[in-house]
Structures are given as structure tokens and as C-alpha cells.
């Protein structure tokens, strides 16, 4: 399987690994890139020194293109933006905000810029500013989420822009992959399934929770803060929800409650106090495999689904 996004990003299969803060480091990113997809190092809220080290380690382990995901709400966004230019990173993916204050600088440096977009307006906006492609991510995904679902968002974004659209949110196997292509996307971004890859260095408790999760095990919290997050239900998410619906809670108290919780999950494996960000597809993720096996399964599953689809046409 191939698509226009492969030539554009210099990859062999149209599969992008979603950036996951505290989770997708050089180890997972280089494994995905070596398997022909686009591996992604997540900058998250980390300082520039950490990201520089991750970029260098990724380069030591793969000579294929890879991406760095920049979380635009990060206090270090500005210095990371400059670092990516200095390091000549092949692809930048942006999330959690509007990337326009950095776009021109990255594009002028020859970096391909692929923003994650939650609406047709933002998609048209970044297209106008020169974006290479967009990732239309529905609220089925884990971590920071938008309001629209993948099924509703992807075709509307495809109609709104003429640059390539990559679908994300709710895709964990070949069926979701094939469906995304049917909606007009030319590739997919997958997060949750890669979280359990052998090469992913996240705490084993995190992988275990994803592997054990059922369809109804995720919940979104933080809508009051304006940037909701999807995670697995546990003591942390129940506590957050209780606080969120308590009328006397201030926004500052709510922000404070969430600080450090993702690190507790990803690094410490703290089942009670950690925030285990996960997509709704966790229930589809049943086993640990190598990144290469995951990509091979996504491709063969999508090809089978696409070939079988013609049986509906009489």
C-alpha cells in the first residue's frame, strides 16, 4: 500500500505514529521509522535539552525520516521551535494550539509542517500558511481532544482543503485504516496501539492497563478548562471529574490537580494517581508486538478490508 503522503514525507507506508508525551521517545520513534512509517518523538512539556537528546538518539537508531510533535501549550514551545530548525528535523507535527507563530520559520528552514487540526477553519488556516499536510484528529483519540468525531471531521476537512489529510482518532487496526481512506484521508496516525509496542519504553503498568481495557473504559475530563483530555478511568480521573463538577472549584485548582499526573502514569506506573491517557480503541488493543508487526498488521488488515469492500457494489 502506498499513498501521496509517502512521497511527501519520504516514508514507505502511510502510517504515522502519534506523538505521546512522556511515552513516545527515540526508542518507539526510531522503531516505527525503521519499519517504514513515520516515528514521532513527543516534546510534550519537556525542556529543549531533553528534546535535543531525543532527536540525536533517534538519529543514532534510524536513518529514515521522523517527526517531532510540538505541544504548543508547552512553556518551552519557543525554544523547541528554534531547536527543531537548528537540528533540521525532517517533519514537525503540532498539537494543542495554533502553530502560526512558528510556521513560516519552520517552512523557510525546509521542515515539513503537519499540524493536528480539530476543525475545518483551523485546517484552512494552516493550509493558507503553507502546511505540508494536516492531521484531522477526532475526539476518539487519547490525550488532548477536540469536540468532533473522526467520522464527522475527516470528510469535512478533506472538502475544506486541497493538501493531504491524515486521519487520527479511533484507528487501531486495518478496518479503521480502510475506513479513514474511504473518508478521503491518505494516511493514518495511530497512537494507542503503538503505546504497547515492544519498543515503547512506557511503564509496564501503563501497557497492562491498555491491554486490559474494554470499550467503555475511557472518559474525557477537563472540558471546563477548555482543553479536555481522554484517559482511562481510575481513581485519578474519578477525582478529576468530581472536582470538575464541584461548583466551588476554581480553574486554578482544577489545573493544579492534573499537574504531573501523566508522568506518574507513564514513568512511575502509578495506577491510582496517574493519568493514563488512551484512545477509545484501547479495547481493540490486545497484545504487545514490535512496531514492525503492528505496521504489517495495519497494512494487511486495511488491504483486506479495501479489497473486500467491492463486494457491496452490485
Amino acid at each position: 500500500m502506498t499513498s501521496p503522503i509517502c512521497d511527501l514525507l519520504g516514508i514507505s507506508v502511510p502510517v504515522l505514529q502519534g506523538g505521546m508525551a512522556w511515552i513516545s521517545d527515540w526508542s518507539l520513534a526510531s522503531a516505527v521509522s525503521n519499519a517504514g512509517g513515520l516515528g514521532t518523538v513527543a516534546a510534550g512539556n519537556a525542556p529543549a535539552d531533553y528534546v535535543r537528546d531525543q532527536i540525536q538518539k533517534t538519529r543514532e537508531h534510524t536513518n529514515k525520516p521522523f517527526a517531532v510533535n510540538v505541544m504548543l501549550m508547552s512553556p518551552f514551545a519557543e525554544e523547541i521551535a528554534e531547536l527543531l530548525i537548528a537540528e533540521r528535523v525532517p517533519v514537525v507535527v503540532t498539537g494543542a494550539g495554533n502553530p502560526e507563530r512558528f510556521m513560516r520559520r519552520w517552512l523557510d528552514a525546509g521542515i515539513k509542517v503537519v499540524p493536528v487540526v480539530p476543525s475545518t477553519g483551523v485546517a484552512r488556516r494552516v493550509e493558507k500558511l503553507g502546511a505540508t499536510a494536516v492531521i484531522a484528529e477526532g475526539g476518539e483519540s487519547g490525550g488532548h481532544i477536540g469536540e468532533l468525531t473522526t467520522m464527522a471531521l475527516v470528510p469535512q476537512v478533506c472538502d475544506a482543503v486541497s493538501i493531504p489529510v491524515i486521519a487520527a482518532g479511533g484507528i487501531a487496526d486495518g478496518r479503521g485504516f480502510a475506513a479513514a481512506l474511504m473518508l478521503g484521508a491518505v494516511g493514518v496516525q495511530v497512537g494507542t496501539r503503538f503505546l504497547v509496542a515492544n519498543e515503547c519504553t512506557v511503564h509496564p503498568n501503563y501497557k497492562q492497563r491498555i491491554l486490559a481495557a474494554k470499550d467503555i473504559d475511557t472518559v474525557s475530563t477537563g472540558r471546563r478548562l477548555g482543553h479536555p483530555v481522554r484517559s482511562l478511568k481510575n481513581a485519578f480521573s474519578r477525582g478529576f471529574a468530581a472536582l470538575e463538577y464541584e461548583p466551588n472549584t476554581t480553574l486554578e485548582q482544577l489545573e493544579e490537580y492534573g499537574v504531573g499526573a501523566l508522568r506518574l502514569a507513564a514513568v512511575e506506573g502509578d495506577r491510582e494517581r496517574g493519568c493514563f491517557m488512551s484512545g477509545q480503541v484501547a479495547g481493540l488493543v490486545k497484545r504487545e508486538q514490535s512496531a514492525a508487526e503492528i505496521i504489517a498488521d495495519l497494512i494487511s488488515g486495511a488491504e483486506a478490508a479495501l479489497k473486500g469492500a467491492s463486494s457491496w457494489v452490485k
Binding site: G97, N98, S119, G121, V122, R125, G226
Partner: peptide, 11 residues
């Protein structure tokens, strides 16, 4: 109007 509406408005 949230940040997404503002993008539409500015455009």
C-alpha cells in the same frame, strides 16, 4: 466564542 471560532472570525 472559543479559539476555534476566533480562527474562523479572523479569516
Amino acid at each position: 466564542l472559543d479559539s476555534l471560532d476566533l480562527v474562523e472570525l479572523v479569516m
